[in-house]
């Protein structure tokens, strides 16, 4: 399949597909980060994760509309405000859901899966009723449009670069929060030994609630970033949920480094193969590969020893 391309062409193809893969990597990683916190740290399967992401995307869309209609002068920086709002909206919803539903189900992980699936159906229908069934796209400020030519054949899009930078910043922030802050220490303590953590005075219920809210909030930011590169509809979240779960499981739950590594592997494999095969076959082969590896190594790429 390589025969019909010359060597420099092949090089450019790999660079361009690699760049497309990096954008996909950013999307996967942003979605997976929230899920890795919720699933990896709390053991809760949140099937409604995609819907939290879409909430963030809708918040971004409405913020952009608001800026466009009322304060067009500040339109070029609306995105930063939108991102904050998306975080707060999804985080608040997450906190409410944890209080209303998830906290009753910590002992029954499979039931959480069903309940959150029900939640995702309800949220989808609510989005459809309130925001309409059509997909919406945000208008990008001028500085985010266009692309930078690197060589004759290789160009990189600015919005792609922006999403990548954002992903990097959020990942570093999450890593800092989890491994350097006092709060992160409490979260990890609860994961490792809930009873002991409670005994030394950590309010485990509060830690659970804020952990869940943080995961959902990051999903909201992911949705916000997602509007930069694609349009948003009521059911867009569902398209990514399986991939995201595979990313988290493949990386080894509870391991931030594993999540990054597996998001990178999966996205690069998929986008490189997409050029040579049809999109659907590339996806099938990638997913099959991941499932195959998971069967040989169920604990994922990176593992953390945890006392249950």
């Amino acid at each position: 399949m390589f025969a019909e391309y010359s060597l420099p062409e092949l090089g450019s193809i790999f660079v361009m597909q690699g760049f497309a893969g990096l954008i996909l990597f950013s999307v996967f990683l942003l979605m997976a980060l929230g899920l890795a916190i919720i699933f990896g740290q709390m053991g809760v399967i949140n099937m409604a994760h995609g819907e939290f992401m879409i909430l963030g995307a809708y918040v971004t869309y409405f913020t952009s509309q608001f800026f466009l209609n009322y304060i067009p002068a500040l339109f070029s920086i609306y995105f930063f405000l939108a991102m904050g709002l998306a975080f707060l909206a999804s985080g608040a919803l997450g906190m409410f859901i944890e209080w209303a539903m998830i906290r009753h189900l910590y002992k029954r992980p499979l039931d959480t899966l069903l309940a959150t699936w029900g939640l995702s159906l309800i949220l989808q229908q609510l989005y459809r009723s309130f925001f309409g069934p059509r997909e919406v796209g945000v208008e990008l400020p001028e500085w985010m449009m266009g692309s930078i030519p690197v060589t004759d054949m290789v160009e990189v899009q600015i919005n792609g670069l922006f999403v990548m930078g954002l992903t990097m910043a959020i990942t570093i922030a999450v890593a800092f929060l989890m491994y350097k802050s006092r709060w992160g220490k409490q979260v990890r303590a609860v994961v490792q030994n809930r009873v002991m953590a409670g005994a030394v005075g950590i309010n485990t219920e509060k830690v659970d609630r804020y952990t869940f809210a943080l995961g959902c909030g990051i999903a909201g930011v992911a949705g916000s970033a997602f509007t930069m590169i694609g349009s948003t509809g009521p059911t867009s979240g569902q398209l990514y949920i399986v991939d995201t779960f595979l990313v988290v499981v493949f990386g080894g739950a509870a391991s931030l480094l594993g999540t990054i590594a597996s998001a990178f592997t999966i996205s690069q494999a998929q986008s490189t193969m997409e050029f040579f095969l049809s999109g659907s076959m590339a996806k099938v082969l990638t997913l099959l590969g991941v499932v195959g590896i998971l069967m040989l190594r169920p604990q994922g790429l990176f593992t953390l020893k945890v006392r249950r």
Binding site: M101, L105, A115, G118, L119, L121
Partner: peptide, 9 residues
Amino acid sequence: GGLFIAVVL
């Protein structure tokens, strides 16, 4: 969706 949640909870 409500059915899912009600049955589980």
